[in-house]
């Protein structure tokens, strides 16, 4: 049973289409728990920033530590097929890259108030998701655009409760996106 060139072309097209869908679904499944975790952290952190601004520095630091540890655990479990926890150095280097980038950025142009501080990280995250989505799948692009747009709307049009806006809509969008990706 030899194949014709047309049949061979069609088979290659089927392969490429299935590979693309599988790669996309794998990326969504891998990212979902991170988005849910950080969405909940945003909700808690921004809520504290709004209701108890004096505590926000310490609370955000504690939440960043919790989020980092949680991310290491999730990443390790994914590498271990959900059974064993193994340390993945790429996660550590991803964090290190982010820390170095923001340290350099703030050294050059530090935010002058908490409002700018509260907007710059979500804008960076939103942009990162758009870039990630260009390579992996549209759901990341949509989530990134939504997070960036909500951040800008809140920054420019919400006067008193920007942090609460970010807790509900920023954190909520991140969490909802995680659940959406998990169902993909």
């Amino acid at each position: 049973m030899a194949l014709s060139p047309d049949q061979a072309q069609e088979a290659l097209r089927d392969i490429a289409a299935t590979e693309r869908r599988s790669f996309e679904a794998y990326g969504y499944k891998a990212a979902a728990p991170f988005l849910i975790l950080w969405g909940l952290i945003w909700i808690a952190g921004y809520a504290v920033s709004d209701f108890a601004p004096l505590l926000s520095g310490k609370v955000w630091l504690a939440l960043a530590v919790i989020g980092s540890l949680g991310s290491f655990i999730i990443g390790g479990r994914q590498k271990g097929g959900g059974k064993t926890v193994r340390f993945d150095w790429r996660i550590a280097f991803t964090w290190l890259t982010g820390i170095v980038f923001f340290t350099a950025l703030f050294a050059i142009m530090a935010p002058v108030d908490g409002r700018q501080m509260g907007a710059i990280f979500p804008l960076f995250i939103g942009t990162s998701y758009v870039v990630l989505g260009i390579w992996i799948g549209m759901r990341f692009v949509l989530a990134g655009l939504l997070i960036a747009a909500l951040t800008l709307i809140g920054f420019y049009y919400v006067d008193q409760h920007f942090a609460l806006w970010m807790a509900v809509l920023g954190g909520g969008t991140l969490t909802a996106t995680g659940l959406w990706l998990r169902s993909a």
Binding site: D14, I15, T18, E19, R21, S22, Y26
Partner: peptide, 11 residues
């Protein structure tokens, strides 16, 4: 089976 193999190959 071709689809199954294609889906598994990218993991």
């Amino acid at each position: 089976r071709l689809k199954i193999m294609s889906a598994l190959k990218v993991l």
